[in-house]
Write a protein that binds this DNA or RNA. Structure first.
Lengths: 112, 112
DNA sequence: CCCTTATTCAAGTTGACGCTTTATAAAGCT
DNA sequence: AGCTTTATAAAGCGTCAACTTGAATAAGGG
């Protein structure tokens, strides 16, 4: 079940999520496919710039692009989101486990 | 319950997680406090470099530093991890919701 | 075949990032 | 007081990231 990625993939993943425009695009794509042109419309920047953001998201595995007539519709690939989730969850779990052990340890001290 | 951050905070958070050394440091800190010197030991880079990484993690709210004698022990602040989790969860949820709606829609078409 | 539409490629600028080295600060040791 | 340990500050360097503009590609429409 656990989606394990290597360091480079995690680099790409968190780098992709570290930009507001790219997070916006991910959010937009949770509601379905969209072309580059459609994705670019809300922004002041050029379509080329958005195309570059799309490339970053693609490298991270967060989205993929198809072909339909002249357009290249983008769609979300939620597996990468799961992977990011998985990494963070692991850290959170390790932290929680440590607190549990600490508590147990302290309880033992109290008893003894 | 949901930890909501603004765009700048999310930028800082995901930027902090986008570097292998910093993710290592986070992982290390799930097992308890550590000084800058201790954190720097496993790496080939200078302690100054690690100190800079720590600053990035601190800006993102992922860790905080105390004072004890000459050292400044770092500890994890898991709330920021929760916030990152929260953002990703939201996207995943939106995606899942959309798929549910699609399925429902298709089922209706089949029936009708 | 031109013309438009959708998109990418390529090159250049600006600014941020990851690191180094040198210097400085603050606390403890002798 | 001087020396050591732990850490940050500041300046500099090379690389990468986020844009821009201009040119190229690919598919369709008149």
């Amino acid at each position: 079940m656990s989606v394990t990625l290597d360091d480079q993939q995690l680099d790409a993943l968190f780098t992709a999520l570290s930009d507001r425009t790219r997070r916006d695009i991910v959010t937009r794509l949770t509601t379905g496919q969209a072309t580059v042109k459609e994705l670019a419309e809300p922004y002041a920047m050029s379509m080329q710039a958005v195309s570059q953001h799309i490339r970053v998201l693609e490298r991270a595995g967060l989205i993929s692009q198809g072909r339909h007539r002249q357009s290249r519709p983008c769609r979300l690939e939620p597996a990468a989101l799961e992977a990011a989730l998985s990494w963070i969850e692991q850290s959170r779990q390790a932290w929680a486990d440590r607190l549990d052990r600490l508590e147990t340890h302290l309880a033992h001290l109290q008893e003894g």
